[in-house]
Amino acid sequence: MLTMVTACSSKPRRFDPDAGSAAGVTVDPDKICEPGTQELCYGGPPSTMGAGLCKAGARTCNDEGTEHGPCEGQIQPAIELCDTPADENCDGAVNEGCIYPSCADVPAGSPSGVYLHDPGASGAAEAPAVYCDMESEGGGWALLYNSVGSDRGTTMAFWDIPYLHRFRSKGEPSLDANVYQGWLYHQGTEYRDEVEDIQGKVAQLFHARSAGIEPDTLHFKAPELVSGESEIYEAQFAAGWSSSDFDGDTWAENCSVKYSRVTQHYSSCWRYSLGSDADSPVDDGGWGPHLHSASARRLGLHVDGSGYTRVKRLSRWVRR
């Protein structure tokens, strides 16, 4: 009969002759296992078994019952490869230490998460970390910015980003934190804006393309709406860009100054804001991201009863 045990021991298991004699059965003292039986075996660190690609194998007791054969089928930790979506070293992380030109170069099938990027585009001394969405619309999307609502009242101040810092980084890449990585505008030809409402429902606001970006004004070159909310696309992508010390929007005044010094793309002025309300008072306790409630309703999102509803998250993704 084929039997399996849940783990293998580094020491041979011998039959107990006394136990056999007590039962009136003659036991060969050289036997350590029952011929033909199998047990699981694994030669790697115990903590890695079952993680990543690593798995146990099986070894079979020989015909004499004196020893086990080789451990067949096991996979032990190996060197991490950068061109596969697998966790070869079985440490629970994929492609750690690997550096990619963009999220689009991360191997297809890799999980969404933080990956290191070529520092050339960012101007950083070391490879910057970028959050990559590897699942939506074919994957390969880099998180350019993310605004997260907070009762602590800290989000609004985060988005006061001066003109000279328009291509710099701020915050750590995560969908649960405020992050801005303006240098990713240099890479982009495709953009996708999305929102998550207070109840956790996520909706895409629009998908757009551009032929690049004007570095002095942050105006998109030849912007084009692919799909989604045309009003939000016009207000937050196709028109202008303003910070508190640069007025590049299409309104007679500075939209950023008008709305709590929030730096973002504007027309006259916004359908969503990364840090300001449009209902009085516009600071809204420092909560942060708001979306025009009429747009939220069209998308089937929760609204809080105001003209510009609080949302949990507003995110912009870019793909080259």
Rank of each mutant, 00 (worst) to 15 (best):
C90H: 05
Q187F: 13
S112D: 00
Q74G: 09
T66Q: 15
I161Y: 14
H219R: 12
S210K: 03
D30H: 06
P173L: 02
S243F: 06
K55Q: 10
K221Q: 12
A127P: 12
G188L: 12
S256C: 06
G286F: 02
V130Y: 07
Q76G: 00
T48I: 00
P17Q: 13
G228M: 00
S268C: 06
D105R: 02
P162G: 04
R166F: 03
M49V: 12
A108T: 02
I75S: 07
A239L: 08
L291M: 06
E96S: 04
G288H: 08
C98N: 03
L2D: 15
K55S: 15
W141H: 05
E194T: 15
E67P: 00
G200M: 10
S295Y: 01
R316M: 05
N146L: 14
T26A: 07
G44F: 03
H290G: 11
A222P: 00
E80Y: 01
K312G: 04
I161P: 10
N89I: 11
D83Q: 10
S174R: 00
D284V: 13
S243V: 11
A56K: 07
G228E: 11
N178H: 07
Y180T: 00
Y180V: 05
H207A: 09
M134A: 01
V257F: 04
G286C: 06
L301A: 10
Y145C: 09
P128Q: 04
L299M: 11
A222S: 10
G300Q: 09
P281T: 14
W141N: 05
I161W: 11
V179D: 01
N89A: 07
E126Q: 11
A93T: 15
H68S: 05
D283W: 00
F237G: 02
G228R: 08
P46L: 12
G240K: 05
L301H: 03
V303Y: 14
A23Y: 08
K31T: 15
S256Y: 09
K221E: 06
L225H: 13
Y131T: 08
G97W: 13
Q264W: 13
A129G: 15
G140F: 00
V148P: 06
F167P: 11
S10R: 14
A142L: 05
F206Q: 01
S306I: 14
G212S: 03
V114R: 01
W159H: 03
H302D: 03
S293T: 07
C269W: 05
R166Y: 02
L81H: 09
V179T: 14
S280G: 06
E126L: 08
L274Q: 09
G288F: 07
I79S: 12
G188K: 02
K11Q: 15
V303T: 13
L225G: 09
W241C: 03
S112M: 06
G120P: 00
R271W: 02
N254T: 01
Y100P: 02
S293A: 01
